[in-house]
């Protein structure tokens, strides 16, 4: 590398660092960050944490049905989203749909949906479907659709062209081509994304109740409202255990799939 090039690289690096420092400085100025405030009031937070212990163990029994409902929400939400994602993923792949412009609207919808946080989706569905887990299912379905469709179309675009060309050569029609050439190649990654999304959804489902969309989140917001922090802690612990178990199972299945 010659000297001039090196100097340009150095200048670029220092400009980037300067930009970052300015960004963080202005951000902390505007959000009112003050370490003094944090450390002088840390005892308040400690008091709240102290109220969370010991957790109310008897509450576990009480919220088990809500926990099952949470898992049910995640299962159904992921399933609905995953099914709708399949045609979208196919239409968004440039190697399936040969005309490039067809993919654009499908990708646009997918990207649009992925920008909306789940909790917000749930808050929009609650006035329509009412308080309860149906709203949660639809919110999770919309969200899972975005995630799975995107991951799936990326893996469809990466498939091996060989079998497809062979099928075209022996005169397969488009449907045969998709069902026997494309789908078998992407089933394993699709299942893996499905499970990955299911893991995310279990986590998300636990807080969706905060806006009224069913599951254990309803109890979370209720106990928080009544300042029953020991019960809040038992809900958190319960969630932790369930999420760990589901993540563990799902990870093992995913490792086998790929």
């Amino acid at each position: 590398m010659n000297l001039a090039k090196r100097r340009v690289a150095k200048l670029k690096l220092s400009l980037i660092i300067l930009f970052f420092i300015l960004l963080i400085w202005s951000a902390s100025k505007q959000t009112g960050v003050s370490l003094v405030e944090l450390f002088s009031n840390l005892s308040n937070m400690g008091a709240l944490l102290a109220q969370m212990f010991p957790p109310d163990w008897s509450y576990f029994n009480y919220v088990t049905s809500a926990m099952l409902e949470t898992i049910r929400m995640a299962v159904l939400g992921t399933t609905f989203g995953g099914i709708v994602a399949i045609p979208f993923a196919l239409f968004a792949s440039r190697n399936i749909v040969k005309k490039g412009w067809i993919a654009i609207p499908f990708r646009f919808v997918m990207n649009l949906i992925r920008t909306i946080p789940e909790l917000l989706l749930a808050a929009l569905f609650v006035p329509i479907f009412g308080i309860g887990f149906v709203s949660g299912i639809f919110a999770l379905a919309v969200f899972s659709f975005g995630v799975i469709a995107k991951l799936a179309y990326e893996s469809i675009e990466a498939i091996d062209k060989g079998p497809l060309e062979a099928m075209t050569a022996v005169g397969a029609n488009k449907l045969q081509w998709i069902f026997l050439g494309v789908i078998p190649q992407v089933v394993a990654p699709y299942m893996s994304y499905f499970l990955y999304c299911f893991e995310i959804n279990v986590r998300a489902a636990t807080i969706l109740g905060y806006v009224g969309a069913g599951g254990i989140g309803l109890y979370l917001s209720r106990t928080l409202g009544f300042l029953q922090y020991d019960r809040v802690m038992s809900i958190i612990l319960y969630t932790f255990v369930v999420v760990l178990i589901i993540d563990g199972l799902s990870n093992r299945i995913r490792e086998k799939l790929i």
């Binding site: 003050s34 944090l38 009031n41 709240l48 986590r203 979370l220 958190i236």
Partner: peptide, 16 residues
Amino acid sequence: VFPELIMALLFIKAVG
């Protein structure tokens, strides 16, 4: 796993 919203509530107690 600890929900962000609860984390936010904890910190609201500390810094308002």
